[in-house]
């Protein structure tokens, strides 16, 4: 069939029992761990492990917008820079922004623009930095999910957190949260981000081949998953601020090399 040209290694991405290469079923997420407040200098920060993805997010601001001609007298700019470390992928990535990361930065900035109460901070900029340290597909969703926690950690007023997840199609089956092999050799990928409280979709992209029905079931899978991700985001914030409150002081800085031990299988 057509899929063969996608799948030169003849990998069987999903077996007859509906089990994927990494043992997941079609509607299972990879394990996700989120930790808030992992950096000292940033106004807010978060670290996320999502399967084999490891992503840091930091937020600075609201602060004076640079360059100044970009300042908006009515509201804050929400600017995101998504960046991949050169060692985050198998083949070294040349440092600095490429076309892919410019596009991802743009769509993530736009995803947060309607969520942040930007009118409260005219002429300023809220700068979001996402650094992908280790990539295994789904880094924009992981980055956006972490950035959302970092924004809350920075005390930026928001309508809600934003939760993000992708679904796609592998071996003819619509599946949640594709990993690298599944993304490379699968038939479609569709990342999305949602404001859980209102159900508004703030990021939506798709590439590959899906029928209309398949697209809607992919979107349904992602939306269901974001409900669980939203809880993990809230728990990460609660953990950080519950500890802070107990000690009556600045919360302890967590070591990003040893994230919390619990694994959240959803």
């Amino acid at each position: 069939m057509k899929d063969k040209e996608h799948n030169p290694k003849q990998l069987k991405l999903i077996d007859a029992n509906g089990i994927r290469l990494d043992g997941r079923r079609y509607d299972e997420l990879r394990p996700i761990k989120i930790e808030a407040g992992v950096l000292k200098k940033a106004d807010g920060s978060a670290y996320i492990e999502w399967g084999n993805n490891r992503v840091l997010a930091a937020v600075y601001g609201p602060r004076e917008a640079h360059p100044r001609h970009l300042q908006d007298p009515a509201k804050a700019l929400v600017q995101c820079r998504y960046n991949m470390a050169p060692f985050s992928v198998t083949e070294r990535k040349r440092p600095g922004p490429d076309r892919r990361s410019v596009e991802i930065s743009k769509v993530i900035s736009e995803a947060f623009a309607s969520v942040v109460f930007a009118e409260q901070f005219p002429r300023t900029s809220v700068d979001i930095f996402i650094e992908v340290l280790q990539a295994d597909a789904g880094t924009r969703c992981a980055g956006l999910t972490a950035a959302s926690v970092a924004l809350a950690d920075a005390g930026i007023p928001m309508r809600d957190l934003v939760a993000s997840c992708a679904s796609g199609k592998i071996g003819g089956v619509v599946c949640l949260d594709l990993n690298k092999d599944e993304d490379n050799f699968g038939e479609a990928d569709c990342p999305m981000a949602i404001v859980p409280r209102t159900g508004d979709v703030v990021l939506l992209q798709m590439d590959g081949h899906l029928t209309e029905e398949e697209f809607h079931s992919a979107l349904d899978l992602s939306i269901k998953a974001t409900k669980g991700i939203y809880q993990l985001q809230r728990q990460a914030l609660l953990r950080r601020y519950a500890t802070a409150a107990q000690e009556g002081e600045e919360p302890p800085r967590a070591d990003i090399r040893e994230p919390p031990s619990e694994v959240n299988d959803l």
């Binding site: 992209q205 798709m206 590439d207 081949h209 899906l210 029928t211 209309e212 697209f215």
Partner: peptide
């Protein structure tokens, strides 16, 4: 009529 690409902006 199948979907091949999408971009929200």
């Amino acid at each position: 009529g199948d979907l091949r690409a999408m971009q929200k902006g």
